[in-house]
Amino acid sequence: MTALPGLFFEWDGSLTWANQAGGWQIDATVFDDGTQVQYVDLHGRAATKEGCDLMNQRLNDLFDAWGDPAELRLMRLPDRRWQDLQQFAKESLSSD
């Protein structure tokens, strides 16, 4: 993850990745059991549709650092629906 420019990762498992000029920010906490990631509490915000596009691209970059993004499943809260990263990005772009 150190290869991702602008990503600030703390040893407690929290991270922030932002580009204010680009209009997006991602905050997360990674929870693990000492051997593998169990889940990630993820929050993102974008000021514009372009910022939302960039944020979704950065999410792909971030999860690509952990493995194949196509294998990821995200739970959208508060409605507790499982989604893949592509469906998550599609819905986040259409919710303007």
Rank of each mutant, 00 (worst) to 15 (best):
P5F: 04
N56G: 05
E91L: 08
W66R: 02
L42M: 06
D64P: 01
T29A: 13
L42V: 07
P5L: 06
G22V: 01
W66A: 08
D68R: 03
T29H: 12
L93N: 07
G13N: 02
S94F: 09
F9K: 12
D27N: 11
R76K: 10
T48M: 03
Q86D: 13
Y39L: 11
R58I: 00
Q87K: 09
F8D: 15
W66N: 01
R76E: 13
K90D: 08
W24Q: 00
F31H: 13
L7R: 04
L42S: 03
E50Q: 09
D84N: 05
R73S: 12
P78Y: 07
S95D: 11
F31W: 13
D12W: 06
A21F: 04
L54P: 02
F63C: 02
L59R: 00
P69K: 02
R80W: 12
Q86H: 13
L74E: 02
E71A: 10
L59E: 00
T2K: 13
G51M: 02
Q87S: 10
M1R: 13
Q86Y: 10
E10N: 12
G44E: 00
W11N: 15
R76A: 14
F63E: 00
D96A: 15
R76G: 13
M75Q: 15
Q87P: 03
L85W: 03
Q86G: 09
M1N: 12
H43G: 11
E50W: 04
T35Y: 10
A21N: 04
L62A: 01
A21Y: 00
E91G: 04
R76S: 11
V30I: 14
L7E: 01
D96L: 15
N56W: 06
Q83H: 06
A18T: 05
L54A: 11
M55V: 05
D33Y: 06
F8I: 14
D61K: 07
D32F: 11
M75W: 13
R45S: 11
L4C: 02
Q86T: 14
D32A: 09
A21E: 03
D64W: 08
A3D: 15
G22M: 00
A21R: 05
V30T: 10
N19M: 05
V37R: 06
A70P: 04
Q20R: 09
D61F: 07
D53P: 04
L93A: 09
L93G: 08
T48W: 03
T16E: 08
R45C: 07
A89H: 06
L4I: 08
G44W: 03
L74H: 01
L62N: 02
T16C: 10
L74Q: 04
T29V: 15
D53Q: 14
